[in-house]
Simulated scan of single mutants.
Amino acid sequence: MTLGIDEPDARGRTGLDQVGRDLAGNPDVVVRDVELIASAWHVLRRTTLEVRDADGSWSTQTRETYDRGDGATILLYDAERRTVLLTRQFRYPAYVNAHPDGLLLEAPAGLLDDDGPEDAIRREAEEETGHAVGAPQALWSIYMSPGSVTERVHFFAAPYSAATRVSAGGGVAEEGERIDLVELDIDDALAQIGTGILDAKTIMLLQWAVLSGPFAR
Rank of each mutant, 00 (worst) to 15 (best):
P100S: 09
L105D: 09
E106F: 05
A107H: 05
A107M: 13
A109K: 10
G110E: 09
L111I: 14
L112E: 01
D113S: 13
D113F: 14
D113L: 15
D114P: 05
D115C: 07
E118I: 08
D119K: 06
D119E: 15
D119C: 09
D119W: 07
I121Y: 08
I121V: 12
I121S: 02
R122V: 11
R123F: 10
E124Q: 05
E124V: 05
E124L: 05
A125T: 13
A125G: 12
A125D: 03
A125M: 08
T129H: 04
H131P: 05
H131E: 04
A132Q: 14
V133P: 01
G134K: 00
G134Q: 03
G134H: 04
A135G: 10
P136E: 03
Q137V: 14
Q137F: 11
Q137Y: 11
A138L: 14
A138K: 11
L139R: 05
W140H: 14
S141C: 14
S141P: 03
I142P: 03
I142W: 15
M144I: 07
M144H: 13
S145C: 13
S145V: 09
P146M: 04
P146E: 08
P146L: 06
G147R: 04
S148E: 15
V149H: 09
T150H: 07
T150D: 12
E151Y: 08
R152F: 04
R152A: 11
R152M: 12
R152L: 09
V153M: 12
V153G: 01
V153L: 13
H154F: 11
H154M: 09
F155W: 06
A157H: 01
A158H: 02
A158M: 00
A158E: 08
P159S: 08
S161M: 10
A162D: 13
A163C: 06
A163V: 06
A163P: 04
A163H: 13
T164D: 07
T164S: 15
T164E: 00
R165L: 07
R165S: 02
V166N: 00
S167D: 06
S167G: 13
A168I: 08
A168F: 06
G169R: 05
G169K: 06
G169S: 03
G169D: 02
G170F: 01
G170I: 04
E174N: 12
E174S: 15
E174C: 09
E175C: 13
E175S: 14
R178L: 14
R178D: 15
R178E: 15
R178I: 15
D180W: 10
L181V: 00
V182K: 02
V182D: 02
E183Q: 07
L184C: 12
D185K: 07
D185N: 10
I186S: 00
I186F: 01
A189Y: 02
A189F: 03
L190P: 03
L190W: 00
L190K: 01
A191M: 08
Q192Y: 07
I193R: 10
G196T: 06
G196W: 04
G196Y: 06
D199K: 15
A200D: 11
A200F: 15
K201W: 13
K201R: 15
I203H: 07
M204K: 14
L205Y: 01
L205F: 02
L206V: 04
L206I: 00
Q207M: 13
Q207G: 08
Q207I: 15
W208I: 02
W208C: 01
W208F: 00
W208G: 00
V210Y: 02
S212T: 12
S212Y: 12
